[in-house]
Design a protein around this nucleic acid. Sequence first.
DNA 1: CTTTATTATGTCATTATTGACATATAGATG
DNA 2: CATCTATATGTCAATAATGACATAATAAAG
Lengths: 178, 178
Amino acid sequence: MNTLSYGLLSLLNRNSRTGYELMQHIQPFWQAKHSQIYPLLAQLEQKGHVQFVHVPQSDKPDKKVYSLTELGREALRQWILKPTDEPVTRDELMLKVYCIGLVDRDQARKVIEDREVFYRQRLLKFEKSYEQLQQNCEKRLDELGLQDPQFSHYVLLHKALARVKGDLAWCDWVKAKL
Amino acid sequence: MNTLSYGLLSLLNRNSRTGYELMQHIQPFWQAKHSQIYPLLAQLEQKGHVQFVHVPQSDKPDKKVYSLTELGREALRQWILKPTDEPVTRDELMLKVYCIGLVDRDQARKVIEDREVFYRQRLLKFEKSYEQLQQNCEKRLDELGLQDPQFSHYVLLHKALARVKGDLAWCDWVKAKL
DNA sequence: CTTTATTATGTCATTATTGACATATAGATG
DNA sequence: CATCTATATGTCAATAATGACATAATAAAG
């Protein structure tokens, strides 16, 4: 079973979700299209790691709400203890920087600024969900710790936020040099 | 032509290199195995974007040193001006965090610490090459700017270093909470 | 009134990427 | 003396991931 499949189980450990929701929530740490996720969910269902219930909706298309089974939870426990794969990053912008001297200053600056716009949108999105979460989680940390159902979400958002702030700082720094 | 192919051309714009060297130098921003890079270089050679010369070696296996052609350089100029793909990250550790509550504190801490070891090795590697580069580049920035052959390398290492420092800080922060 | 965006699911051909195999030399470790 | 690591190239089957297509309801924008 591949990493993304475990990732889907991992999200389902916190909440039951639809395939569509899983795709949205896994995004910051593992980008995948729905065309990859739906077949994997079908596989996981066949193996008995997840279950689903049809939820008819009148205003929107019907959905399938998936939840983790005990078998799936046991698979997760074993997965956590296995060695963790190294993180993969693939960033076209960085590859462009290697030859940025081929274009003039204004064009080079625009390449960086376009990415800055992207990072700023991400920052806004993360900041919104982070702030309430932070206050709640820090308060309850002493009592609940790892068992707090929001703890992992808080820890992950912290990472995503720090990452994107660092990326934006780099954009500023390099623009000043161009 | 795919992004990695342009990335290889981009590296070759700075220096002529072997496929093996390209694989090593592109690593921080685009992880790829030699089994992907060698076929792409063969394609690029057929299209006339790169050339190579055989360099016999007695102590090590013979190598092929690739260099960028004028056609390849022109392809790069057009590539830079096209919209840049969003960066892709795939991090198994983050997916594990979603269900870290399934194991006990010590096991959870070990998962983070293993990644910390990996980050620390990266930090050492980047720091070594960065420091001399920084002094040289900052001095020459006023005179040469983008045209400094080491400028892009400096800017990229700055990014890689900042990234890994942030990642290490997160490891510390989250370990204190576990 | 048409187009676009969001929610929601799915399939399938194509492309990208990996892992295993293969070969070869030198130096280090055990 | 055997094994491991690094350098250096290459092929190919298997897997992972994308992009295009398909369907369908609602709401908003032009």
